[in-house]
Write a protein that binds this DNA or RNA. Structure first.
Lengths: 215, 215
DNA sequence: CCGACTATCTTGTCATTGTCAAGATGGCCA
DNA sequence: TGGCCATCTTGACAATGACAAGATAGTCGG
């Protein structure tokens, strides 16, 4: 890859290296996800020594967590943008779900990293106050924030009678579960390589969201 | 682990080793999935040399594929049993989805292996007629067979007016996508570690399946 | 009954990786 | 000016997947 800077200053770039590492890692997770991520390879891509990443990420998993966090932010923005473009509540919800699926399709490696089992298992079993823990807690917050978008749409819609009664969390969960499952079936099973996947996603999501409508 | 046999015969067990390797691998994939699977460790667990698995599985991925296939068979049987225990079509579908989720919760490592990105990527890019390819084609068939259960329920239900009109594939896809997504949210995000997850799953799935009912 | 063949498993090796420990470098502050 | 320290490098180690070559035992043809 391109050397880090034309001036070839070897080190002492400060915190910028951290960002560069994440940026390079964002490339390497495509398409396989965390399994395709090698700390050494990332270092090589950025042009630093193999142990340089250790200063910012105690673990390979910590680097993956930072990548995942960046992914959640990007996905969040995509969804937010899609939602803002609609007026009716049901359309907002559908748009959010489809944006979710579309993101997964376009960046399946990143998407896989965001939901990597390794990260989940570590989150369940966090070492107390180990350095670099921020990346993981950050991750949890971003996930919650993302789900919050769906809950808000549902709550607003319920207030105006657009959606059926019931705990907003459950309705939102139904929507995100379907979107998540659909996305994963697309990318983790060969589902629909031939057909237009987004069209298929729309049909299926409409069926699911039908169950959320008021009647 | 327990030595392979009390007689300690070192090798020449024939095809039985293959089964033993898969059996041992089924243990090792818990809880992490394919990432926790080491061919060498499996060989060690069975009591053979580190290169012995190579005779049955050209790849580490081929071993994982065999594990995944075994997983799909187990899950298929769980679902089938749950479906047989119900009479109404809508109850059959709900039971199938819940059995799906429950399987994922109880064997999350195996479940993760079944849908591992590495397997998906290889399936998309199969080397032509390489030895050990059977494990992968087998996998595809098992997946299709599993989805077929859902499609059949939907089709039968539609025939008797229990479900709404529409392509049976799409309705079944909506159900499985929700179940799949719910399962993954449970195991890949800390979702619901405290609450009773199966109860939550039932509530959410009822919302989704409501959208499939005839009205 | 003997010798060769073959499937089956073993031993040895190599490149790669994650992680740790120790050393070098250059800016910053007393 | 001189020392301190964050930052990066070099070096090392164990583990892994993959490959090559060798050993072992059952079998089969003569």
């Amino acid at each position: 890859m391109a050397p880090r800077d034309s001036k070839k200053q070897a080190y002492h770039w400060g915190e910028q290296l951290r960002g560069d590492l994440v940026e390079e890692a964002l490339r390497q997770v495509e398409p396989l996800g965390i399994a395709g991520l090698s700390a050494r390879e990332v270092a090589r891509g950025v042009g630093v020594s193999h142990a340089a990443p250790a200063h910012y990420f105690p673990d390979r998993l910590a680097l993956a967590a930072a990548v995942a966090a960046a992914g959640f932010e990007q996905m969040y923005e995509s969804i937010e943008a899609a939602v803002r473009a609609r007026r009716k509540h049901s359309e907002k919800l559908l748009a959010a779900c489809l944006a979710y699926v579309e993101f997964a399709l376009e960046r399946r490696g990143l998407y896989r990293t965001m939901y990597a089992p390794e990260l989940a298992e570590r989150l369940n079993n966090l070492p107390r106050s180990r350095k670099g823990l921020d990346d993981f807690t950050n991750l949890s917050q971003l996930k919650a924030k993302g789900f919050g978008v769906f809950v808000d749409i549902v709550r607003d819609g319920q207030a105006e009678g657009a959606f059926r009664a019931g705990k907003a969390d459950d309705l939102a969960r139904a929507a995100t579960a379907a979107a998540h499952g659909l996305a994963r079936q697309f990318i983790d099973e060969g589902l629909g390589v031939r057909i237009d996947r987004m069209a298929h996603a729309r049909q299926v999501m409409e069926i699911v969201l039908d169950g959320l409508e008021a009647r």
